[in-house]
Design a protein around this nucleic acid. Structure first.
Length: 289
DNA sequence: GGTGCAGAGTACC
DNA sequence: GGTACTATGCACC
């Protein structure tokens, strides 16, 4: 499909009027004035960390318990890593939990516990790159940022880069670059209420992917993932889970986890190097308290 | 039963 | 500037 930017705006806004999704990290109000902080920045920070490469449905299940256990920056910063990782189990990519707590500690130390509003200050925090910094600025502070996220990417490819080839025929070329999308995102952005506009785009994107094949396949940024089964990733996740239960020696981990022995050892060494694990009394425990 | 895919960031080359 | 790496479960083919 190819549409005018004006018509595009109407389609997205009309959709949002009836299909806007409500989440615990989103403010319920539909109309919020600029500069008004209706979404608590800490809640946005936690949600964005969880939502990096993890489906919304799964984040929903874990989010409220996490917030209840760590209701603010100070609580998260001062918590033992083991508790943070336990609360994180099921979300995947434990490294993000490590980063999120690192960010909380840095925010407490450098910004008096207040989530910084500046883009540069945000990007300095561990686990927060360009996209998440912009998302936090848009969602927590309603700042008119220009950024790309997987649903946004799908929506713009769908509307502005022709129809997706249907059914049989050659595999569609992955030739849409993000730099081609950015001017369109900038042009169509609702600067009066960026937060709701981006909510609407993302809500539309998820709807789109239920009806069509993922338009983001045509992005040069789209990558197919390696198989999880038998991967080091799988071993790392299993090791963290086991050590959270109780201390294990390397041999115990190798025996109890039904995974390739070399992978388990590699996982333990890597996780120790990264600060997940430490050795105490010849056994591995979760480190970084 | 196998595959694609989540509101990406970091490390390393 | 590209590339590989990082969990987990579920919807969909």
């Amino acid at each position: 499909m190819r549409v005018s930017t004006k018509k595009f705006g109407k389609i997205i806004n009309d959709f949002s009027r009836t299909r806007r999704r409500v989440f615990p990290w989103r403010p319920p109000e539909l109309r919020i004035k600029k500069d008004e902080t209706a979404a608590e920045p800490y809640r946005v920070l936690v949600s964005e960390a969880m939502l990096q490469q993890t489906q919304v449905s799964r984040v929903c299940e874990k989010y409220e318990a996490f917030i209840k256990q760590f209701p603010n920056v100070r609580a998260l910063a001062n918590a033992p890593l083991s508790l943070v990782l336990r609360a994180w189990q099921g979300l995947g990519y434990n490294r993000r939990a490590l980063h999120l707590q690192g960010a909380a500690r840095e925010i407490l130390r450098t910004h008096k516990g207040e989530i910084p509003r500046g883009r540069e200050a945000l990007e300095t925090l561990p686990g927060i790159g360009p996209a998440t910094a912009c998302a936090i600025r848009a969602f927590a502070f309603n700042e008119p940022e220009i950024f790309i996220e997987t649903n946004i990417r799908s929506v713009f490819i769908h509307f502005f880069f022709g129809p997706r080839p249907t059914g049989l025929g050659p595999v569609p070329l992955a030739n849409v670059r993000d730099v081609e999308l950015l001017p369109l995102i900038e042009k169509t952005l609702d600067r009066r209420n960026p937060r709701e506009w981006y909510y609407a785009l993302m809500d539309y994107g998820t709807m789109l992917k239920k009806q069509h094949k993922n338009p983001s396949r045509r992005s040069t940024s789209h990558v197919l993932q390696k198989q999880f089964k038998g991967s080091l990733r799988q071993a790392r996740g299993a090791v963290v889970r086991a050590v959270l239960e109780h201390p294990h020696s390397l041999l115990e981990l190798k025996k109890s986890l039904r995974l390739e022995s070399d992978k388990v050892e590699q996982a333990v060494l890597g996780l120790t190097e990264e600060g997940f694990l430490k050795k105490a009394n010849r056994k591995y425990v979760v480190g970084g308290e």
